[in-house]
Nucleic acid binder design. Structure first.
Lengths: 275, 275
DNA sequence: TCAGAAATACTCTAACTGAGAACAACGCCG
DNA sequence: CGGCGTTGTTCTCAGTTAGAGTATTTCTGA
């Protein structure tokens, strides 16, 4: 199906009239989430360069459509760009989960020029401390609760209220990422992407509690998780020790092969929450 | 928070090195769905220009970042671009619903150059026949069943099997749009966006059946719709006449103010379906 | 050895589900 | 005009799932 050719190329260029166009830049930004000490945390970098120099922001950068020093053409897919930028700026590998979130193209979102950004959601298991690189002056896992984000709706325009304000429209992107994670815990086995290969039901419950920001009834959670076919599979092993303050040893489970949860684990309808 | 200025501009340009970059184009493509004669249909255009000249494709085009004849800078948001292109190419207005779907950036997806496209899902109520314009040689509402799409997974690489193949990766985008619509019928009042301001429960059920491609139990559907708070509100009116082959007059309802359906209307778990 | 803690199991009631039947109101046609 | 098929609406019933609370088991630490 190769319909490329000189004729078509000419047609296109005639219609394209590059001189009439302002350049557009395409970037990727990643909402990387993890659990650290029981708290849902997001990976932020401190911007070294203007605009928003000194502000915290989501790690990300330009999609490569350029030539290297050797003149070789670099063309990467958007997912690859997201992973590359994450590693370049923070040293963190998005090895557990990576999915596209949404694309933000408000003409005023970057004061420099027209920048359209494709946002990603990444989950990372038990990550090391980040190592800042590239345009990042610093990088850190930051508990989401410390950011004092408004709700997704309210954060849309204003950005974070108190706490550290984020650069650009990153407060909104973060809010959208959090909402996506919260929603997908309900009907997919996404929670297992926060955990290592083997985990207990209590650890799984801790993921739900951290992401949803709510207490979850241990007994009912246990029953529901085990009743969903393919969510978790028993390993037959138990933990080496009980909890640090006593308690029974727990069964260890592995993630099953289900891609969707039937029935779903719905979050309580009530409003409240957010810690 | 105006951090724009000559210094920052210079910084940015120093890092950007435009001469090292190949141009990137950003387009929008829209999966516009409607119900015509009870069949779920998608709006397609026939491409006038290469590549894929003569192929059917989703309506869409370049996001404006250009100067008009008067030299005025045109900067539109992505949503605006999607609506504009839809109307330019087909004459159809996305007045009922418009939401972003996903962004596709495979470096090989357009044989001409690097084109990143932001896909949208639009729903249209009782639309007229399209009027082709712009780069479209033709435009038509096409029943989705006629396209013989594979499932979302299988369609990813190969595009449509039999039936008319779509240009670029539009078969995959369409599959993703259909899956989004099917999923959102479950937990949002999206189905009402297929209907006019007043509708009967049976018409609402017809939307679910057309989009899901499955029969839905009339009695249970009725009960569930009325039991979800804020999904529909009674108008007190009834239809002028019963059905063409007899039958009782139906109560008329309006869309309620719920944004989420609690409890949700889950589609039957079974596989099958697709008409 | 005991108190507290955590994992797991059980109980109860309320709510919801799918399947089917029943009832109500209409158009059509003889 | 009156039965009949059609469609809208309500109801019944048994099976499943939900939330809340409690009980039991098996740990740790004092």
């Amino acid at each position: 199906m190769s319909i490329t050719g000189p004729d078509e190329e000419r047609e296109f260029l005639a219609a394209y009239r590059p001189e009439d166009y302002h350049p557009v830049a395409v970037t990727v930004d990643t909402v990387a989430l993890t659990l650290r000490g029981g708290a849902l945390s997001v990976l932020l970098i401190r911007r070294a360069m203007p605009p928003f120099a000194g502000f915290w922001a989501l790690p990300g950068g330009f999609v490569r459509t350029d030539k290297t020093a050797s003149g070789h053409l670099v063309e990467e897919d958007l997912d690859e760009a997201a992973m590359r930028e994450l590693t370049e700026e923070t040293g963190i590998l998005a090895d557990s989960h990576l999915e596209q979130l949404a694309t933000y193209g408000d003409p005023t979102r970057d004061p420099r020029m027209r920048v359209i950004t494709v946002a990603y959601l990444a989950l990372v298991v038990d990550p090391p401390d980040p190592v800042s690189g590239g345009d990042a002056a610093d990088a850190a896992w930051t508990p989401v609760a410390e950011l004092n984000l408004a709700t997704a709706d309210a954060a849309a325009g204003a950005g974070a209220r108190r706490g550290r304000p984020l650069a650009f429209d990153h407060a909104r992107i973060l809010a959208d990422g959090l909402e996506r994670a919260r929603a997908k815990l309900e009907y997919t086995p996404l929670a297992t992407a926060f955990l290592g290969p083997e985990f207990t039901i209590a650890e799984l419950r801790a993921v739900y509690e951290a992401v949803w920001g709510r207490r979850v009834h241990p007994g009912n959670f246990h029953r529901k998780v085990l009743s969903v076919p393919g969510f978790v599979v028993e390993t037959g092993q138990v933990t080496e020790r009980g909890g640090p303050r006593g308690g029974r040893r727990a069964q260890l489970y592995r993630a099953g092969d289900a891609r969707l949860l039937h029935p779903a684990l719905l979050r309580p309808a009530g409003e409240g929450a957010e810690q």
